[in-house]
């Protein structure tokens, strides 16, 4: 298990990054982690992660900013909540993952494809008030670059055709919500409040 490897690097602790993470909405919870590994064994997508949640938390404590921010761990999280239910210290691990995704996007660590998906999803909420799946898909491929993703697009055409044939993929979006302007005001106020706090 990669989880057991000890790094040959000399250990250096850099509290600047750990403080930055502890200041996030759910950041203080990381300090409760006792490195038991229950999250790692419970995680549905652990096999695809660079580091298990346990290791990621340890890297945060050590202040390894680049390693943490470039890792795919938070992006592989599917919010299945098993770690949150099982964590003996009651850490809302998935909510910490939300914070780490948010921090990565804010600071431009957006090379993992999931980052494009998340941004596409949010753009959809912002522009319609509701999410139209066709819109998210189109925005995702535009963001990733159609040329680079052409293989994916072609390989998924059978799934897409099946969905079209069974009327599961409307081609036109539903109407925007009536209160879209109101929703924008609420979002802008919430985001400005968040800035004041941090």
């Amino acid at each position: 298990m990669a989880d057991c490897q000890v790094s040959p690097e000399a250990v250096r602790y850099d509290p600047a990054f750990s403080r930055e993470v502890y200041a996030l909405e759910n950041g203080p919870q990381i300090k409760k982690c006792m490195q038991c590994g229950m999250c790692a064994v419970s995680c549905a997508t652990r096999a695809s992660m660079n580091y298990s949640p346990r290791r990621l938390f340890n890297l945060i404590k050590q202040g390894k900013k680049e390693t943490v921010m470039k890792s795919n761990t938070m992006w592989m999280c599917t919010t299945c909540l098993m770690c949150k239910v099982r964590c003996p210290r009651g850490i809302a691990i998935v909510d910490v993952m939300h914070d780490l995704k948010n921090l990565a996007i804010d600071q431009g660590y957006v090379t993992h494809p999931q980052a494009a998906f998340y941004q596409a999803f949010w753009k959809e909420i912002w522009s319609r008030g509701r999410v139209f799946e066709g819109g998210v898909t189109a925005r995702y491929f535009l963001k990733r670059g159609i040329l680079g993703e052409i293989k994916t697009i072609l390989s998924m055409k059978d799934v897409g055709m099946d969905m079209l044939r069974h009327s599961r993929m409307p081609l036109l979006p539903p109407r925007k919500i009536k209160g879209l302007g109101d929703l924008h005001k609420i979002i802008e106020k919430a985001r400005s409040q968040r800035k004041e706090v941090s």
Partner: peptide, 25 residues
């Protein structure tokens, strides 16, 4: 005139607080 709840995605872009305010509308 309900709006999207943000699912498990919006908080990754704007944080839990903003997502929850959106949901609270």
């Amino acid at each position: 005139d309900w709006n999207c709840c943000g699912a498990t995605v919006a908080s990754g872009v704007v944080g839990d607080y903003t997502q929850q305010v959106v949901a609270a509308r």
